[in-house]
Design a protein around this nucleic acid. Structure first.
Lengths: 249, 249
DNA sequence: GTTTCCATTTCGTCA
DNA sequence: TGACGAAGTGGAAAC
């Protein structure tokens, strides 16, 4: 249990050497920026990372109660027997002020991490899957383009079906809600304005909420069940490259 | 620098006593669940919280590289001189598997936090501000209701203007993008179906993106500049209670 | 830098 | 429990 006075120079030295720092103790936190907040006294875990971001974690919950993104300037000082850690984010004009009444643990960490991180079964995987295997949506489908800019946004996948009708495919990696339908409808309206061809809307997702089913019928949008994990598996089996360009026709 | 063999019982005891645990060391992480991921060897900070959530933090970045929400079961063991921490979330069928090659620091924390947290200048504050001072939007505006259920969702604030026209107000605490306009347009369409009265749409936000301005004109939606901080200030000055009920007429 | 949209989003709320 | 929308959302990609 380091004393407040001793903690100040240790933290300052750690910061100047761009090390990661963990402070655990009883503190209160004030935040002013886009919004503002006040957090009364309690035990927290404060992490200052090497990119000058800062997190204040409570003993519960996934998300930090206070934080600042990378790019902070820090002021460390002892004020009336309290350890004050002030993180100022100049760019976004935000400030987090932490005031420690007691410090239980202070760690200065010399840690490095260059380990590669790979995520599978993202929406992008679903898109790649459809681009390389358009039959998964519908037999005879031909991809024209993807991420095509249409008036206010991007169409996920843009196709022609076996009867030469335009098909706009909207992909969601989760149960699709009303927002997904609205997004697709927006694109459909835009495409119909540009083209006299018949235009179909297809929502590809692992599921749809019940209330959305009605909207689908009303708007004549089709639903195609498609799971992100199945897509990722299929991609793995067929060893598709990460590059998408080759699928454009 | 504790040895792997020593770490296992210490962590197990900490878990059984529902303490918070921090493990810092060189590890790799595998995740399987809604999606899946692989993270190669590197130094990380692992936090197991008292609600049985777990976070894996790299020395950079705001967000954890891997995590699990509250409600995990943990398996701690030593495997071939590696410390294995397996977090299984039964409910969501997700698993995070952490394999430590080396442990630099191991902390078992007896920390408690009941400190009250208050956030100011949220969208709810903006809504309260409009409800108690509807003139801030427009002189002569009368609030009919708020969070009113309209077919597919909830209208933020629902009013009558001085000419007895219906006014649907959509509130955003940030620069409003295309999604905000879409949402408002959705409500406008629904309200116009239900009522023969003239219906106006007002977007109250601190700003709008340039491309959205065009949509506003096309859809005949009005924009009212309104900052969340100004709203919070006004509420503070007039000491409005948190209760909203009294504003319904 | 602005805009758009995904995210293992998380979180809260309400029916 | 499902559904819907906010969040101090964060993060990335495109332009």
């Amino acid at each position: 249990m380091p004393r407040i006075k001793d903690a100040v120079p240790i933290i300052q030295k750690g910061l100047s050497e761009k090390k990661a720092i963990i402070v655990i103790g009883e503190c209160s936190v004030d935040y002013v920026g886009r919004a503002s907040s006040k957090l009364k006294l309690g035990d927290r875990i404060v992490i200052i990372k090497r990119d000058s971001s800062i997190l204040v974690h409570r003993p519960r919950d996934y998300s930090p109660v206070n934080w600042q993104p990378p790019g902070c300037l820090f002021e460390i000082q002892s004020l009336n027997d309290f350890l004050s850690i002030k993180a100022v984010h100049k760019k976004s004009k935000e400030t987090v002020n932490i005031s420690f009444k007691r410090v239980y643990t202070l760690l200065v960490l010399d840690i490095f991490d260059t380990g590669e991180f790979t995520l599978y079964a993202s929406e992008e995987d679903m898109q790649r899957c459809i681009l390389s295997h358009p039959d998964i949506i519908e037999s005879g489908l031909k991809v024209i383009s993807y991420e095509k800019k249409i008036e206010p946004g991007f169409v996920d996948v843009y196709c022609l079906d076996s009867l030469n009708r335009l098909v706009v495919v909207e992909i969601k990696r989760r149960i699709a809600g009303i927002d997904a339908v609205m997004q697709l409808e927006k694109y459909l309206e835009a495409v119909r304005k540009y083209s006299n061809r018949e235009v179909r809307g297809v929502l590809a997702a692992p599921g749809i909420s019940r209330s959305v089913q009605k909207s689908l019928v009303a708007l004549n949008i089709e639903f195609k069940p498609l799971s992100p994990k199945k897509c990722a598996e299929l991609l793995r089996k067929t060893s598709e490259s990460k590059s998408l360009e080759k699928y454009i026709t």
